[in-house]
């Protein structure tokens, strides 16, 4: 069943079974060492199979249907799922952030995705699923991590500075004047992983997309500019998405009168 398809060596069931044998050996080792993770490993392996094969079927169907509404609907599902993950990762955030987080993710994610596919890559037609969905996934997934980190950070820092915030508010400060050091801290924290990735890429690791293209037989010098474009866009999505999400949400920690809500006062 092994055959070359467009420069790619396709993997068949026997190869999958061989790869699974490695996981079974790994599971055996964890059992010998009583690590207590064998069941989790088995379930996770099964999920990898099911989820990725399902993704393959879905993407194949989407690529064939090639309808703009389907592409947009898939981006919408990604955005909603990412927003839910962000809010789950920010337990200290005030309630009611779904709308503002989804909005900043959507504006940034959709703008940047189509900027890359339309202006940089020049996809024709503009909604071509083969380009829009993988690039959209990378943009949304990366800004999701940045936004989650920044949101978690801003509310933790506001709580840590609650005494200073009270003193500032008592001097007549607006919520922005009292909160902006925390907003800066949060955005810096949210951006550091992205900057580190930009600095380390190509030396410490080969990014997933470029690795995939090279494995698929693409000339590395064709793959590299692609990856550069994606890195730039992902970093931009990261910065703009977390800035938007934090700016739209920090005010919820204050009453309309500008009073910072201490822990006991949050309904």
């Amino acid at each position: 069943m092994t055959e070359a398809v467009g420069g790619v060596v396709a993997i068949g069931w026997p190869q999958l079974a061989l790869a699974s044998a490695f996981i079974i050996v790994t599971g055996g080792i964890t059992l010998l060492l009583h690590l207590g993770v064998a069941k989790d490993l088995a379930i996770a392996t099964l999920r990898t199979y099911v989820q990725l094969l399902a993704l393959g079927f879905v993407l194949r169907w989407v690529f064939r249907s090639d309808a703009p509404l389907v592409v947009l609907a898939i981006l919408g599902v990604m955005l909603v799922a990412a927003t839910r993950i962000i809010l789950k990762r920010s337990p200290d955030a005030p309630p009611g952030l779904f709308g503002s987080t989804l909005l900043s993710m959507a504006i940034v994610g959709i703008t940047i995705t189509f900027a890359v596919t339309g202006l940089v890559v020049g996809v024709d037609p503009w909604w071509r699923a083969q380009y829009v969905i993988p690039i959209g996934g990378m943009v949304i997934g990366n800004s999701m991590s940045g936004i989650a980190l920044a949101l978690e950070r801003v509310f933790a820092d506001l709580d840590a500075r609650s005494g200073e915030i009270l003193a500032l508010t008592a001097l007549g400060a607006t919520p922005w004047e009292a909160a902006h050091p925390s907003v800066r801290t949060a955005l810096r924290t949210g951006l550091i992983p992205g900057i580190n990735t930009l600095a380390a890429v190509g030396i410490v690791f080969i990014p997933g997309m470029m690795a995939g293209q090279v494995l698929a037989g693409v000339d590395p010098l064709v793959a590299a500019p692609y990856q550069i474009v994606v890195m730039m866009m992902v970093a931009t999505a990261d910065v703009l998405g977390s800035t938007g999400a934090v700016l739209l949400s920090y005010r919820r920690r204050f009453t309309p009168d500008g009073i910072f809500l201490e822990k006991g006062h949050r309904g």
């Binding site: 005494g163 200073e164 009270l166 003193a167 508010t169 008592a170 001097l171 007549g172 400060a173 607006t174 009168d257 500008g258 009073i259």
Partner: peptide, 16 residues
């Protein structure tokens, strides 16, 4: 409220 607080100035117990 900000004008009020600038005229009726609260000083927290722990000088922050």
């Amino acid at each position: 409220p900000r004008m009020w607080r600038s005229r009726v100035a609260y000083l927290p117990q722990r000088a922050l």
